[in-house]
Design a protein around this nucleic acid. Sequence first.
RNA 1: GCCGCGGUGGCGGAAUUGGCAGACGCACACGACUCAAAAUCGUGCGGAGUAAUCCAUGAGAGUUCGAUUCUCUCCCGCGGCACCA
Length: 1182
Amino acid sequence: MTEKHKKYDHIKIEKKWRKKWARSKTYRTNEDSKKPKYYVLDMFPYLSGEGLHVGHPKGYIATDIVSRYKRMNGYLVLHPMGFDAFGLPAENYALKTKIHPEKAVRDNVARFKEQLEMFGFDYDWSREVNTSDPAYYKWTQWIFLQMFKKGLAYQSYEPINWCPSCKTGLANEDLEGGRCERCGTPVEKKPMRQWMLKITDYADRLLSDLDLKDSTGKALLDWPEYIKESQRNWIGRSEGAEIEFRLSLSKKRRFVLIHGFEGSVKTNFFPWLKRELEKQGHEVEVPELPNSLHPRESEQVEYVLKNCHFDEQTVVVGHSLGAIVAIKAIMKLNRHISGLVLVAPAVDPRFHQADSRPFSKDFNWDFDYGRVQTLTDGKIAVLSDTQEKFRMPYLKNLSQQLSARLVETKSSEEHFCAEEEPEILKAVTPSIAVFTTRPDTIFGATYLVLAPEHPWVQIILPYLENKEEIKGYISLAKNQTDIERSDVSKEKTGVELKGIKAINPANNEEIPVWIADYVLPDYGTGAIMAVPAHDHRDWEFAKKYHLPIKDVVIPTVTDHTNPPRADKTTKTRRNVHAIVYNPARKAYLTLKWKKFPWNTVVLGGIEDGETALEAAIREIREETGFVDLEFKKILGGPVEAKYFATHKDENRTAITTGVYFEMKSEKKVDVSEEERKAYDIVWKDPKDFIPEKMTNSELPFWLERIAKENQDFTGNGILIDSMDFNGKDSQFARKDITKFVSGHWVTKYKLRDWVFSRQRYWGEPIPLIHCEKCGIVPVPEKNLPVKLPKVKHYEPTGTGESPLAAMDKWVNVKCPKCGGSGKRETNTMPQWAGSSWYYLRYIDPKNKKRPVDSAKEKYWSPIDLYVGGAEHATRHLIYARFWHKFLLDIGVVSLPEPFKKLQNVGLIMGADNRKMGKRFGNIVNPEDVIKKHGADTLRVHEMFMGPFDQETAWDDSSIVGSRRFVERVWRLGSVVSTTPSPQMKYSLMPQTSTKPFPLGETRSPFVRLSAKSGDWLPPAETADVKFVQKILHKTIKKVSEDIQAMRFNTAISSMMISLNQLEKSQSLTRKEYEIFLKLLAPFAPHITEELWISLGNKDSVHVSAWPEYEPILAVDEEMMIAVQVNGKVRGSFKAMTDTNQDQLKESAQQLPEISKWISGKTIVKVIVIPKRLVNIVISDYN
RNA sequence: GCCGCGGUGGCGGAAUUGGCAGACGCACACGACUCAAAAUCGUGCGGAGUAAUCCAUGAGAGUUCGAUUCUCUCCCGCGGCACCA
């Protein structure tokens, strides 16, 4: 034994090689290569200040293995690393330790790097990025500005999620079940000024691009399905209809419609509008104004005042010049009216063509705005037509003067001149838009529910009878946290808006309107039509408040054992099924028909004027005589069943209602002879009372409803009570019904815009300036980056202002546009900003002109492999995809998706199977493990623990297996490269195994290869040489495939198997040993390098060529063939792989252990599976 | 509730166009070496049974010559979404 192989000193070896690699820049990625590229990336760590535990590097080990493998296969590999240094985790750590975040980050980076380096990773540190480095965040700010310029960044004042503990606003993505993801505090809703990013503009692409295909039709994104699924859930696309429900005030109104210049009661929308309003029961007056072609103010106003009746129920509608007449008339009234609607009012003499019109001089254009306001109680609406742009400024001015609601809308024909103008109808009888995915159930909509926050509630409030109750409910709803509100299990609450009704546009029925907190303000339209018969939530609500439930969709079933026949006529009948349970017998009442092989429940038709319940009681009495029954429940709405009624020789479409009874006693009355002959009464045990043993195809529905509390049917079926749509399949009627009620088909998303500002110090300053004159002005690009100023106090204020706001010197700047005084935006960006594009910066980390050079971006894109934790599924990975798509749109990048293959790391749990972390005190420190066993051992072990993407608990004892493996590789090296000595025990022991070697060769002990080191014998063509070759070729194949598929555990297992075999070889050559070292090199880089170099190699094993295998040599020539008799293994024999099937059959049957099973038996057939087994099937097998 | 994934020895886990279940490793037991221990090497190791053999991949059914693998029903665990209309 030579000195250098005496002992495997991992500490010394690992330290030595890390130093050498760093000095010789072994892993530097130089771009001037003609090689194919491979970009492999880890999700970079964020600096929370907590130390590393053994779970953190698991993903880094994997990328290290893959990158080394690819490098050895001739790829130019980019494998960079950096740090996510901005954001809450880093800042909170700084606050806790009272170290300034900048210094804390610097220290943490240094420590982190030190720890990473202990693993011997092959990162190219010359490309390191740090999101808090001004040279980096200059470009983060730059990207933000591009978004701002494209209108994707905007300010909002809507209430947002506020974490009272972190003292900052949060994005939806930062929540976990209504709590702050970082600290677990329940979030509050707080209205404040926010910067938002319009990620919703990209919702559609973010969703559909998940399924992009490459040119061969394969999925472009090789991602775990569940990550894609999470993103789909998060984006939450759903299609449905937006439908208007008109509101009708319960008190009827009177309308006065006043036409304009050259108008008449017979032209434009007047006849139509009159008709529509009268339909709703309102009174309508349409005065025909005198001298319509040459109108004079006094004449027309007086006419109106004289001929029309004005009272507190009167709403005045004026069109064009008629609007002016209306205003003037109201000014002269001495009583209040109900409201005023001005449709495209001709409000100013300077308007279009006015000078040429005869009335421009005759009319007086001064208005007593205050008086009009008073007399209408401020209930004034101004309708503008967006097609008439020139009129807009006047209308804006008018509505301001009158404090009126300005409704910008598109008329059917310019200036509201069409015969039908639905927008006017909407304005005079306001409507609520609802969103529904089930417009097919609209005939069953029995009430409307608005979110308490719905803006209409405030508008309608003055008209309502129970104002105080409603105000109370709204404030109650507002004070709830998200967690309280979204508690599904809690009982639903709500209040009816009394004094108002909605009109179901499908059947013009009046339905009540409620507010309830189970309707969310920010999804859909914030209002729903409630269909209690076909929606769980509506059902619960309706039950509680005794609202009507109307079935309009019924389940449908075709009896496949007895289907309708094409040549027979079809009859539709209303039926009843009586399900009768007898508790005394613990059995169900059924009828066994004598003429037919049927078992049915008691059933029959429902006669005219009879209810289902009456029919059921009658049928039970007629058919069985039983009369002492307790009615339990109607089993929901009817079920439609199609079948052939044999006894009537016709097809039936039965609309059947189920009724459920329990029997109190078997008291009975006489049954007619006829009935008695037809069937026997049979009591069926509940386990036999199942669809398979009964002849009622509706039975599954009855059973479900007996068991279930809720009786809503949410599936698809056949429409009933839906007028022209009766009998249609609900699924296919959706779009037609939407059209029928003048709704339109829309797409909605759950995804919300990204709340992009944080009221904290440690983040990228948002590069905008608020100027008194110019509004919001972007910081000119040449002035980027806007550096985060150094401050003494960076504690969050909690006021909704960032700590930066207190820094007058920094805040007050000159406006870049006008030079006037301006103030900097003091909010900072969220943690996820910098990480949304960092992968691009590695490609070109030092570029001062652009975020990334286009040519370089084209060369390296996309990222071939991206490895990280699944916790980023709906945050980082959505944000990064969003930014990437935006960068594609502005030409910075060239591909729609950044990450081609995504691989998730399964967590390493603590020994107690809980998440490893401080709070459970179950952290295993990698430094300790490395000190004890070495980095190579830890790397091998973490990869061997189980499937890479699966979580596994750390087990301190099992790591010795990996250590033994590494050490045995070391000792095998000493045997190969040195003279064997008699003292050496390892594997030179006589073989005591009783098992034959795979090839069955007898092996003589104590035979070794060459004598002197460096003096190699040429491989002899012996069985042993072949044996070693076979092992190696198989292993090369397996390890290569497994690394590419990230099955590291089985790759290591195959190397262990291989090592077990190689140790038994008596003629292992240096070449063969080197192959083994190469296979292991990506996993255990230090020890393999040491052994490789000690064998006399000059260059690093890590830049050597990956071994290739011969497919022929990787396959066994001989195999054990298992022999089965009737599928049970009874023996086996050895055969050459290419032995033909007949021979295999023959040999199998001749085996002594087989003949014992088959002698005297009839062989039915023999099945041969090449290379695997022979199965002999005998018929008389006991 | 909806969607996705999974359930195999004492433990981590192998095994897929359906073909010998438990590879590899840990733990354990025995043996060799040693004065002894550790390390190392060898042997054994799902359960029952002396054995032949039988039973066994969450439970039950089905398809098949043959099922951990395919189909159906159910149970349990994990993950995502969740009063999203």
